[in-house]
Amino acid sequence: MAEKILHAIYDDDDKLLAAVKKIKEAKIDIEEVYTPFPVHGLDKVLGLKETRLAITAFIYGCIGFSFAIWMMNHIMILDWPQNIGGKPSFSFIENMPSFVPIMFELTVFFAAHLMVITFYLRSKLWPFKEAENPIPNTTDDKFLIEIKFDGSEKEIKKLIKETDVLEIKLHLNKKNDND
């Protein structure tokens, strides 16, 4: 387990991007980057995989669509068919045009809500969750690169000093047991 944590703080998104590129080129692992807003291209430079949330939304939408069909077929055709204004009630396909609006609404309902819930769970966001950004300014105007490592900090520090860094902070990793 890494015993030291280095925080490199930047005050500009372009400086951060350049620094991340440089650190990556030197084959040093970046543990995490905290930014106040989405920095475009950062995920590519960091080599993050593309998120699959859009795919989950599609699957959830399909579930919502199927649920709507099942529900309305069960209620209007199977359980209690009624003659309402002469509309055909004994065959799903003939009654289907009236069901289209709710099929659509439930598709959107399922896709949107379940995707957002998935996002909250995957990114660990919920009420009473403690924030984990190391310095509070990273939600304002500072950008922070976190590097965990063992041994001497000399080389890493030297490399980071070559970038346009504002401040470097070194910590001992106290959370070793938990990691």
Partner: peptide, 9 residues
């Protein structure tokens, strides 16, 4: 917390 991955998502 504003992690890179959080922003991507």
């Amino acid at each position: 917390s504003g992690r890179a991955k959080d922003w991507q998502r």
